[in-house]
Computed example of a mutant assay.
Amino acid sequence: MTPRRPARSASADDLLTTLGLLTAKARQGADHQRARVDLAEALQREMLPETLPCMPGLQTAACYTPARDGLDIGGDWYDGFVMADGSLGFSIGDVQGHDVEAAAFMGQVRIGLRAVALAATDPGEVLARANDLLVSVGRDLFATCTFLRFDPVEWAVESARAGHVPGVRATADGHCELVQDPGGLPLGVEPGEAYPVARRRLTEAGSFVLLTDGVIEGPSVPIESGLARVVRVVRSAAAASATAGQLAAEVMNAAESTSHTDDAAVLVLSHEAGAGERAPPPPPV
């Protein structure tokens, strides 16, 4: 006679049921997180410009990449547009947070900067007005940003920073340096903040490289080391007469060595040497 197998205890059945429920919940959570990541990435890419303004003597290029692990998406942006006076405005920035809310807020900041730039051309004033606008909205998020104005008549660049990481400037004679001009607090933190403006005449050919901290910072790479690496990359690329697109790609490749857990953006302006005042560009359409 075959011995009967002992009946499974009620506690064992309960345990299996609980494990099944937890597994199903975990799968739902993973699917929900994946959906949020996909939505954030879609929002991010839809909100970034398809093209950047350029003109004879000025090349522009940009790169964006999501975080290496695909979870931290939604905060970084770049932008470029023709301002009301015919100059070119460029912005790059990073919103606090890495989710759908950050992606949506990024869109608000980017469009807010464009709207403010319709009435103001001074980069410091653009950032100050955008800051007050964001403070008035009452969101808990904030954004770091660099706003740069390219003057095609004076052949000069004016820039202001709101808590953002410094950029890099290279010239044709081999000089390369961090652009660590004084700045103000991130946008959306305190009303009435002032943002100093730095102005540079472009008497030599060269490039400005603006970036977000995802390019230079990683789990084991401090910002200082990442910045030093980017300076070396920019110096080498400039010496090889790289185009703006090539330079943006080289800098973004440097981000891969950080194993970045944040998304990353790079914006490059490569210019010829100035030769006195130039004719103004046609008005924006």
Rank of each mutant, 00 (worst) to 15 (best):
A103H: 05
A143R: 00
A103Y: 01
N131Y: 03
G112K: 00
V137K: 06
R129Q: 14
D140F: 08
V135M: 11
L118N: 11
D122M: 01
A143E: 01
L148M: 15
R149Y: 06
D94V: 03
G124C: 01
A117V: 01
A102T: 02
A119K: 14
G124F: 02
L113D: 04
C145M: 11
G107D: 05
A128C: 06
H98W: 05
L118A: 11
C145N: 08
D140W: 03
G93F: 08
F105V: 07
A128I: 04
A117C: 04
D132M: 10
L148Q: 01
F142P: 04
N131G: 05
A128S: 15
A143T: 12
L134A: 07
Q108K: 11
G124K: 02
T146V: 15
D94Q: 11
G107T: 07
A103D: 05
Q96F: 10
G138I: 00
L148D: 03
D140C: 13
V135G: 14
C145P: 10
E125N: 09
E125G: 12
D140P: 08
L127Q: 01
V135T: 14
G107F: 01
T144D: 01
L113I: 15
V100P: 07
R114E: 08
V135Y: 10
V137E: 10
G112C: 12
V95A: 00
L118E: 15
T146C: 14
H98M: 12
R110D: 09
P123S: 13
H98S: 04
C145R: 08
R129A: 14
G97K: 06
M106K: 00
A120V: 07
R110M: 13
T121E: 06
S136M: 08
A119H: 14
L127M: 06
R129T: 11
F105Q: 07
H98C: 06
V126D: 00
F147L: 14
V116N: 09
T121K: 07
R139M: 10
G124S: 05
H98G: 06
V135R: 15
T144E: 00
A104I: 13
A104G: 08
A115F: 06
R149P: 09
G138A: 05
A143W: 00
D94M: 02
H98I: 02
R129C: 07
M106C: 04
V116E: 06
V100T: 13
L118M: 12
T121C: 13
L148F: 08
L133V: 14
R110H: 09
D99W: 04
R110F: 12
F147T: 08
R129K: 14
D99C: 03
T121V: 15
G107Y: 03
F105E: 05
F147V: 02
V135H: 10
L148E: 04
F105C: 05
D99Q: 04
G97C: 02
